[in-house]
């Protein structure tokens, strides 16, 4: 809202919760470089839910349909193999996971369980399609950020593979 409007008018219409949520979204990698209006559209396309510790978000092998963005919870990722369940890592506020679901509907490679109570946002693939169709500028920025995010992930994996190879040679 512009400052031309009287103070009482702005106070009457302004939704404080909305601006708090937007401040959080600005810090999320996937939404970098987006203006308030674009973040507002993204926020409307997402679903919010409060999770309790122990609740399972998705299981390994399930077809991924949504990407998860943690606002205030802690989530543990585990993978089951012949030797039993192995913890891959823990994620906290601001982290994104299950992002591959936005690109392709493939089986999940790990199980996600909530370790600490909190709020998590879900962003579904069909909603992304609608968003791209109705607001292409938002869709393009989102996909560009997604490409940067995946590129960083790929660089990290290459580095780790390199280290493993060096350890093997040593």
């Amino acid at each position: 809202m512009t400052s031309i409007l009287p103070r009482w008018f702005r106070k009457f219409f302004r939704d404080e919760q909305h601006w708090d949520d937007l401040a959080f979204f600005r810090e999320v990698t996937l939404f970098h470089g987006m203006n308030s209006w674009q973040l507002g559209r993204i926020k409307q396309a997402m679903q919010k839910r409060t999770y309790r510790a122990g609740e399972v978000l998705f299981k390994e092998g399930q077809i991924g349909q949504a990407v998860f963005i943690i606002k205030s919870a802690r989530v543990e990722l585990t993978r089951t193999s012949g030797e039993g369940a192995r913890v891959l890592g823990a994620l906290g506020p601001g982290h994104i996971f299950g992002e591959m679901a936005l690109l392709e509907q493939m089986p999940r490679t790990a199980t996600a369980t909530v370790a600490e109570d909190g709020v998590i946002y879900l962003f579904y693939t069909a909603t992304l399609d609608t968003l791209i169709r109705h607001h292409p500028a938002v869709g393009v920025k989102l996909m560009k950020n997604m490409a940067i995010f995946l590129s960083a992930l790929l660089r990290k994996t290459n580095k780790e593979l390199d280290q493993v190879a060096r350890q093997g040679q040593g």
């Binding site: 679903q47 839910r49 409060t50 399972v56 998705f58 949504a66 909530v114 579904y124 069909a126 609608t130």
Partner: peptide, 21 residues
């Protein structure tokens, strides 16, 4: 969504998003 068991949230969201689209 608050009433739905956590493991079914993703499927329910998928269903509603597809119907809405």
């Amino acid at each position: 969504f608050e009433w739905t068991p956590s493991e079914h949230v993703e499927s329910l969201l998928g269903l509603l998003a597809e119907i809405n689209a």
